[in-house]
Amino acid sequence: MPGGVRTLDRMPSLLPLYGRAGLAAVPGTGLLGRLPLVPGPRGRELPPEGLSVAGVATDASALAAYCRACGLTLRNEIPATWPHVLSFPLQMALMSAGSFPFPLIGLVHLDNEIVQRRPVGLGERLDLEVRATGLRPHPKGRAFSLLVRARVGGEDVWEERGTILHRGAGDPGAEPEAGPDPPGDDVPDSAEWRLPGDLGRRYAAVSGDRNPIHLHPLAARALGFPRPIAHGMWTKARALAQLEGRIPSAFRVAVSFRRPVLLPGTVRFAASARGRDLAFAVRGSGRERPLHLAGELSPPA
């Protein structure tokens, strides 16, 4: 990754970050800029500097709760989506900084690609690094990439690239982001997930991702959704749980979040082989089968 990196002594605590993000979202708080602890004016560019924390350990109880919430088996190797959760406070710290060009609340996760270079043991300590890069025009606003990298003693073991959208004045001429193609419509659904209304709160508790659109109907409505929506990263983890036993030790898994999954709700899962890859999708259970998530599991690049 290009650019410098600022190394923190320890993983930042999430609560103050939420306070900062929440305050920054309130219009007019710019006036408070002269007070201490209140963010200054927003920057125009993404921060050139990344954030990192060394030697991050996995707490087995926390992982067990995460696995339970996502339908994953608690094994000696951590799930491929777990370093995302481990690095989440760093991501928050980066994006809730006052100089970050966009307010955190309202950012939309468009797609997510994870590459696992090798299985990562539960006892291994990860050096995690987070960076925002590639600010670009998007038909519905502006997008950027959030990169996370996990290393063990200098060895690259895991990477993540998420595309984040700040909704606003879009550029109609901008190239739409290419994502994985779902399996064809002729591929029958192989599983049904009945999602409870409190799924967002459950996942928030195990992942630390307490974005209000996932938590409560009122909060979701205030942010433009009729009901709370499932976390995209829950849906991705749940899809990997569905594929458990068919996942090689090194792989790339890319998903695009096409349409929010409203809670409570019922969605269906389908998967089919496509050459060396495995295409999968999460669709609505109605006759229209609206596409919520399209994904692809493939050998690592």
Partner: peptide, 11 residues
């Protein structure tokens, strides 16, 4: 303590 029978057997 937090592992299920299925977790243990799978391991």
């Amino acid at each position: 303590a937090k592992a299920s029978n299925q977790d243990l057997l799978t391991a």
